[in-house]
Simulated assay, not measured.
Amino acid sequence: MESLFTKKYSSNNFFLLAGPCAIEGRDLAFSIAEKIVKITDKLEIPLIFKGSYRKANRTKADSFTGIGDEKALKILGDIGKTFNISTVTDIHETYEAALAAEYVDVLQIPAFLCRQTELLAAAAKTGKAVNIKKGQFMSGASMGFAVEKVLQENPDANVMLTERGNSFGYSDLVVDYRNIIDMKKFDVPVIMDCTHSLQRPNQTSGVTGGSPELIGTIAKAAIAVGADGLFIETHPDPANAKSDGANMLHLDNLEALLEELVRIRKAISV
C-alpha cells in the first residue's frame, strides 16, 4: 500500500476519493469505477475508489445496508486489482478492520465514530492507511487527538482527515472552512467530503435529504482553501440509488466538475 498511496499523494494535483455510496452489485460498481478511472487518468488526478461494503448507520430499520460483507468487499478488491487503483471502505466495529484490510487499501472511520479509541487502534494495527472523518460535533483542531491515537498504535501509519460539515440545528449541516486549515496543521492530507457535507439528516420521512446542486460550490471552495483531496460520491442514477441518493453527484456531471477543479488547483499553485 505504501508505494501506491505515497505515489498518489505526491502528485501535484489534488487526489480524489470517489465512487458510489454503497456497493449495490458487481456490474454497477465496475461500470462506475471504469468511468471514474477513465476521467481521472485523463485529468491526471490520483484516484482512490470508494464504496461502503455495509451501511451500518441508517435512519430506518428497513433501510438498505448491503449485499453481504464478503461479497461487497471482494468486489472492491477486484476493482482495485483490475484497474490498479487504491480502494477505500468504512469500518464500524473493531473486528471489521482486519476483515476489510484483506480487500482494500484505506480504512475509513465514519464521522460518528471518530472518537472510538479501540476502532482507531484496530485500523492502525492493520498497516493500512486510515481516513478519519471529522465528527459533525467536533472542531478541526480537536481532530489531532484522533491522529495521535492511530500513530500511537502504528507510528508509520498513513493518516488522512476528512471534513464533512458540522451539525447546524437538528437537520442540517454547515461547512466551516477553518477546519481544513486547522487540520492541515497536523501534517496529514486533508480531504473535503463534498457530498456528505450537504446532507440534511434526520428528516421526518426517515430518508436523509441533501443539496447536490451545491457539490461544485463546496468542492471549489475546498480546493481554493487548500484541501489536498476531495471525497465525492457519484452514481449514474442517484434517484434510484439504494443509499444516499439525495446527495450524490450524477456520474455524467463528474468530468466537467473535475476539469473545473483542476483549473482552480493550477491557478492557486502558480
Rank of each mutant, 00 (worst) to 15 (best):
A239G: 13
A123L: 03
A56E: 08
P212T: 06
K38V: 13
Y177I: 09
A227V: 09
A122R: 03
G25F: 03
I91T: 03
E163K: 03
N84R: 12
T65C: 11
S63G: 01
K220E: 15
S52K: 05
G245D: 04
I67Y: 01
F137T: 08
T82A: 14
K35I: 08
Q136L: 15
T126S: 00
T40C: 15
I67L: 01
I79S: 10
Q203K: 05
H235F: 02
G140F: 05
T87A: 06
E255P: 11
I215Q: 01
Y177L: 08
I180D: 06
I132H: 01
D62E: 08
E233I: 07
A56G: 03
K71C: 13
Q203E: 15
D172E: 14
I36E: 11
D193P: 13
A124Y: 04
V190T: 03
E24D: 13
F137S: 07
C114K: 01
R178F: 11
S63C: 00
S197P: 04
V225K: 03
Q199E: 04
I264L: 14
D156H: 12
E148M: 06
A221K: 14
G226P: 05
M192V: 14
A246H: 13
D237V: 04
G66D: 01
A98E: 15
I264A: 06
T40Q: 09
